[in-house]
């Protein structure tokens, strides 16, 4: 698909908006529909879109394998780490009230980081699965 000029230009235009929309879904999840799962999938979809139009090596140059594999684990660790920080600050595990100077602020902070962990893991896993499938396709038939 690398030769289709229209696709390439439109893709370049749309990917920026897709990533922006993913960030909107992530950070506006407190007020509207959305959150880590959806935002992770949308941001992964933006990269996959790029990979489909520009080819897998181009996408691997933007988001390399080691980064994707780190993301898979880092998200869960971040989520679990929020719980540990709560423990260290004198609360229960995954207790957000102790994270800020007042409870509501602590809740905001806790939810923010937890959703961030979900986003990182989901995006990483989706990208990794796509890379593996597409990598097999490129190594095999082409």
């Amino acid at each position: 698909m690398k030769d289709y000029l229209v696709l390439r230009v439109i893709a370049k235009l749309m990917i920026a908006f897709m990533l922006l929309f993913a960030l909107y879904v992530q950070f506006h999840g407190d007020f509207g529909p959305g959150g880590g799962f959806q935002a992770g999938v949308i941001s992964a979809a933006a990269i996959i879109f790029y990979a489909i139009i520009y080819g897998l090596p181009a996408a691997r140059a933007v988001v390399p394998d080691w980064l994707v594999e780190t993301m898979v684990g880092a998200g869960v660790l971040l989520y679990a780490g929020v719980g540990v920080v709560g423990l260290l600050l004198g609360g229960n595990y995954l207790d957000y009230f102790v994270l800020g100077h007042d409870p509501v602020h602590g809740q905001h902070r806790g939810i923010f980081w937890v959703e961030m962990g979900v986003l990182i893991t989901v995006a990483g896993v989706m990208l990794k699965i796509f890379y593996l499938f597409a990598g097999r396709a490129e190594g095999g038939e082409r």
Partner: peptide, 28 residues
């Protein structure tokens, strides 16, 4: 309690934080 108007986010990330941690682990 949470200062988050979207109740789905409040339940998902705060009240049911353990479940969501489990879900993330499942994805992982």
């Amino acid at each position: 309690e949470t200062g988050v108007p979207n109740i789905v986010t409040a339940v998902l990330a705060s009240y049911r934080g353990y479940d969501t941690l489990g879900e993330t682990t499942v994805v992982f």
